[in-house]
Design a protein around this nucleic acid. Structure first.
Length: 666
DNA sequence: ACACTTCGAGTTTTT
DNA sequence: CTCGAAGTGT
């Protein structure tokens, strides 16, 4: 049963602007797609449309923000047309870069068994270099490893030199400019020598490959005849450059985005990419999608108002034909736990009325905002999955075990050697360095007698590594091999080793789905599994689960009912962003993204007593929160939401009295 | 050269 | 309070 893709058939399922986007195949296109305006639908239909027209699936390249998004779209396209759509090349910029580089690494002086460093790895490496160069003992305090990586990474992603980055965003580090430059250069050399590649390098090397090797560039460009980029507002300069090079041969490039939803500037993203697109791709056709198919009108009234105050944007006002009569509800809860109880109560109520848990999400600005809620939900047996926050693979013990596999894969992976060696008693930074340089020089794992005899652990590890290398084992088998060796070390190092042992089981379970070591390691770095997925997966299959998520991780998703917690000054906007106008604007867009996830019910909550601040000031001090400026600045509270309170929030509490009488002494 | 202790600072979002 | 980094002791 073949699907009809004629214009008249499409008319039944898409609006005119959407059809225009779907049917446009040749040339550059910019789709400005407001929240919930069916941008995913457009991409899905366009993939199916092109394939149906006879384009080979693997000639279509669909770049998305997460692998999940790409998979989801291709699944939908397959349902629409047929299985061919699964063969479309899709993924994130980083995974695409990885795939290309594994093939062409040698052309740009890179070994093709390079190891990918995740952020903590990159930080540790920088720290190592910083210490070796002696910068840590200068009189004034030197930037920390996290900050150094941030600076260097921004400079790479924005294609700006360090000085400009420091000037714009880190003026307080300006005095360290020369040192940071030296560290960066050393870091670059270090990675090169050891076949290590960090996230940014994936993009940098890809760009370099496309720039320096015209033949490869035109081959790739001819291979990927139709390029689509989702969430274009969250790409950075480097990614825009890559796209430009890739599309050079044919300029069949469609980018889709919404400037109002740009929330990744901390990672170097720049929504000006959208604004610049028509200039860079001359003759680009711009299509704007304004009809919202997601949210009921009262919710849109609120979100339109929130984004109206934004400083800089493409003008667009979303409208919806979904009427709805429920105003968003704003709840002042007594404290954090009251906030959690309100949500749990409400969720049970909603479930009674037929709304499944999987159609409900609780969103928040930062990972820790949900701590109390998680306990409350657990105590009421409400199953949930949490997205965002600390990742499973970033836990120390998981990284420990993975480091063994990484050494098996890439003998010169100095970062992993550091991890593995420092775990041993009697071996510190100096010995570690010596061993690594011995291995690098000899290009072999055979250590001198006297080095090897230094520690029994070292001897057994070397032995195991040899065995692993000889055995050609699958990832899960490798893990099993190293586990016996690692467990005593684990017990020695951590008090809570039982919990951690459980995690290792989970790791084993994940690994058993892979047969290639390279694929396993790449996925762990590029597409790591979410932390709580296992526990949730083990529960009743039919019992659907509630979603807890950071706003960032909720991008592109939607739910019938959305709760947003901690809608308070200092939380959203985060107090870390208050200094800088641009950052506050980004917080506003973040708030906007959160609200626009809701279809029917939207709850905004704020705990009256601010636990975080109270802890900070010591016991006995209670400080009251203020509603987020995004709610108060344009009279939203009086017009667009319904107010409720929960717990013993007094109508005239201290906060209100303070407002009236001025602040008393704290 | 390591291991252990103490001090002090900061605390977001993710590929 | 929790982490990381500097300082001290063996």
């Amino acid at each position: 049963m073949k699907k009809d893709f004629s214009s008249s058939a499409l008319k039944k399922e898409l609006n005119p602007a959407q059809i225009q986007a779907v049917e446009s195949s040749e040339g550059p296109h910019l789709i400005i797609a407001g929240a919930g305006s069916g941008k995913t639908r457009v991409l899905v239909y366009r993939v199916a449309y092109l394939v149906q027209k006879g384009v080979q699936p693997d000639e279509i390249l669909l770049l998305t923000f997460t692998r999940k998004a790409a998979e989801e779209m291709l699944k939908r396209a397959s349902r629409l047309l047929d299985e061919r759509c699964q063969k479309v090349s899709g993924g994130t910029f980083h995974s695409f870069a990885n795939m290309i580089l594994r093939k062409y690494a040698s052309l740009i002086g890179l070994a093709n068994n390079f190891t990918i460093l995740d952020q903590p790895d990159a930080e540790d490496t920088l720290n190592l270099i910083r210490t070796q160069m002696g910068f840590h003992k200068s009189k004034e305090r030197f930037p920390r490893k996290k900050a150094i990586l941030e600076v260097i990474s921004k400079s790479v992603n924005k294609s700006q030199d360090l000085e400009a980055v420091l000037d714009e965003e880190f003026p307080h580090f300006m005095e360290w400019l020369e040192e940071i430059k030296k560290i960066r250069d050393e870091y670059t050399k270090y990675k090169q020598a050891k076949s290590l590649v960090d996230y940014d390098d994936l993009l940098v090397y890809l760009k370099k490959l496309l720039q320096l090797h015209g033949q490869v560039r035109s081959n790739l460009s001819r291979k990927y005849k139709y390029i689509m980029v989702d969430e274009y507002q969250d790409t950075n300069r480097l990614q825009a450059e890559i796209i430009y090079l890739l599309a050079a041969e044919h300029r069949n490039i469609m980018v889709v985005g919404d400037d109002s939803q740009s929330i990744y500037s901390f990672r170097g993203a720049n929504f000006k990419n959208i604004i610049d697109f028509p200039r860079i791709f001359e003759g680009a056709k711009i299509i704007t999608l304004e009809e919202n198919y997601r949210s009921a009108q009262p919710i849109l009234n609120l979100t339109n108002e929130v984004i109206k105050s934004a400083e800089e944007k493409f003008e667009k006002t979303l409208f919806s034909r979904i009427k709805g009569d429920k105003l968003p509800i704003y709840v002042e809860a007594e404290d954090e736990n009251a906030q959690s109880r309100y949500i749990a109560d409400k969720i049970l109520e909603l479930r009674e009325s037929g709304i499944e848990l999987k159609d409900i999400a609780v969103l928040f600005r930062s990972g820790w905002h949900s701590n109390d809620l998680e306990i409350e939900l657990a105590s009421r047996n409400l199953p949930f999955v949490k997205y965002g926050g600390q990742k499973f693979v970033e836990a120390a013990h998981i990284k420990d075990v993975i480091s063994y596999l990484r050494i098996v894969y890439n003998l010169y992976d100095a970062v992993s050697w550091h991890r593995a060696l420092l775990l041993m008693r009697g071996i510190g930074p100096v010995t570690t360095e010596r061993i690594i340089s011995e291995i690098t020089n000899k290009k072999s794992i055979e250590l001198d007698e006297k080095t090897a005899k230094k520690s029994a652990d070292l001897e057994s590890l070397i032995h195991l590594l040899k065995e692993a290398k000889a055995g050609d084992l699958a990832p899960a088998e490798l893990i099993r091999l190293f586990l016996d060796y690692y467990q005593p070390l684990l017990k020695e190092k951590y008090d809570d080793f039982n919990k951690r042992l459980n995690d290792l089981d989970s790791l084993l379970r994940i690994a058993s789905r892979y047969d290639s070591l390279e694929k396993f390691l790449t996925d762990m770095a590029l597409e790591p599994p979410e932390r709580n997925i296992f526990e949730a997966g083990l529960k009743d299959r039919d019992d659907s689960t509630l979603t807890l998520s950071t706003i960032h991780s909720a991008k592109g998703l939607e739910w019938n009912t959305v709760f947003l917690i901690y809608v308070a000054e200092g939380h959203i906007p985060s107090y870390l962003s208050l200094e800088n106008k641009e950052q506050i604007e980004e917080e506003r867009r973040l708030f906007y993204v959160a609200l626009t996830r809701a279809k029917e019910n939207l709850f905004l909550l704020k705990p009256h007593i601010n636990r975080a601040v109270r802890n900070y000031l010591g016991d006995g001090m209670s400080i009251f929160t203020e509603a987020s400026r995004f709610l108060t600045e344009s009279n939203i509270l009086n017009n667009l939401v319904e107010m409720e309170s929960f717990g013993n929030t007094p109508a005239f509490g201290d906060a209100e009295l303070e407002d009236i009488f001025g602040s008393s002494e704290l």
